[in-house]
Computed example of a mutant assay.
Amino acid sequence: MARLKKVEKVFIVRSLAQFMTPTEVVVAIKENFKIDVSPQQVEVYDPTKTAGADLSQELVDLFHEARKKYIEQPIYNIEAANDIVQLRVLSALFIKKQGNTRDAIKLSDQIQKIVKGYYEKKIEITGKDGGAIKTETEHSQRPPMFTPDELANLSPQELSRLAINGKL
């Protein structure tokens, strides 16, 4: 188990706050700091896990602050949310999958949807000349009322039929 400096701990906490898995954080730590850590060691820095129950308050606060900032960021800050990035990735996949007809058709369809703005179209339903939709309520006539004498003369079958049909 590697002994971590504060900079490395902060990096791990921020990475976990951005919903990276412990395995992804292990790879990122290896790339950025040239240190070998285990996924179990990384989990200790996640206050949402049982392993992170004893994490210092400073790192817990950092985790929650980083997660809040990550969730509240505008969507255009996310690289994969941009159409051009998606098109580049889909285009590379399309070239690789040209031998697989079914996958190539699906990828081609996905690319066309992005290019033609399929996901950006919004449908607004309005009434005449863009106004509110007019609603009308119809009042149906009440079924005929029966007098107590008329009801007394009906058979049990007729009474149940009236009740089932809502005429009673």
Rank of each mutant, 00 (worst) to 15 (best):
I78P: 04
D109E: 14
A104P: 02
I71L: 08
S56Q: 10
E58K: 13
I29N: 04
E24D: 08
A104T: 02
D103R: 06
L59Y: 04
E31S: 08
V115I: 15
V44D: 00
G52W: 04
S56V: 12
S15E: 06
N77E: 09
P47K: 01
S56D: 15
E43Y: 06
F94Q: 09
A53E: 07
A81D: 08
K34Q: 15
N82D: 06
N82M: 05
Y45Q: 02
K68F: 12
N77P: 01
T101Q: 14
Q112S: 14
A80G: 09
R67C: 05
I71G: 01
Q57G: 11
I105A: 07
I35L: 15
E58T: 15
A81C: 10
D61Y: 09
A51S: 15
I35K: 15
A17S: 00
N77Y: 05
I35G: 15
K68N: 14
P39R: 05
K113W: 10
V37H: 05
P39G: 04
Y70D: 02
V85F: 10
L55D: 00
P74F: 08
P74Y: 08
K49Q: 11
S38G: 14
V27F: 09
Q41G: 13
T21D: 03
A81Y: 14
A104L: 06
T50L: 04
D36I: 08
N82R: 12
P47V: 00
T48S: 08
I71H: 04
L107I: 12
A53S: 11
A17M: 01
G99K: 05
Y76Q: 09
I105M: 12
K96F: 14
L62Y: 02
D61M: 09
L59P: 01
M20N: 12
A92P: 03
S56K: 14
T21W: 00
N100L: 04
N100R: 01
Q110V: 03
L55Y: 02
Q57K: 15
V27Y: 07
V60M: 04
Q57P: 10
L62N: 02
Y45C: 01
N100K: 04
L55S: 00
A92S: 15
T50V: 11
I95R: 11
S15W: 04
A17I: 00
E43F: 06
G52A: 03
V115N: 09
Y76C: 10
N32L: 12
I84Q: 13
V89P: 03
D54Y: 13
V60H: 01
K96W: 14
I29K: 00
R102C: 00
A104E: 05
I84F: 14
Q40R: 08
E79I: 14
A104F: 03
K113Q: 11
G52E: 05
R88K: 11
E65T: 10
A66P: 00
Y45F: 09
Q57L: 13
K30Q: 09
V115R: 10
T23L: 07
I78M: 07
A28E: 07
L62H: 02
R67F: 06
Q41T: 11
V85Q: 08
Q40S: 08
Q110I: 02
V37P: 03
R88P: 03
F94I: 06
K97W: 07
P22F: 01
Q110Y: 10
D54C: 13
I75K: 14
K69R: 07
Q18I: 03
F94H: 13
S15R: 05
V89E: 11
Q98L: 15
L62T: 06
D46T: 07
Q57E: 14
I29E: 08
K30V: 02
F63N: 01
K30R: 11
R67M: 06
V27L: 10
I35W: 15
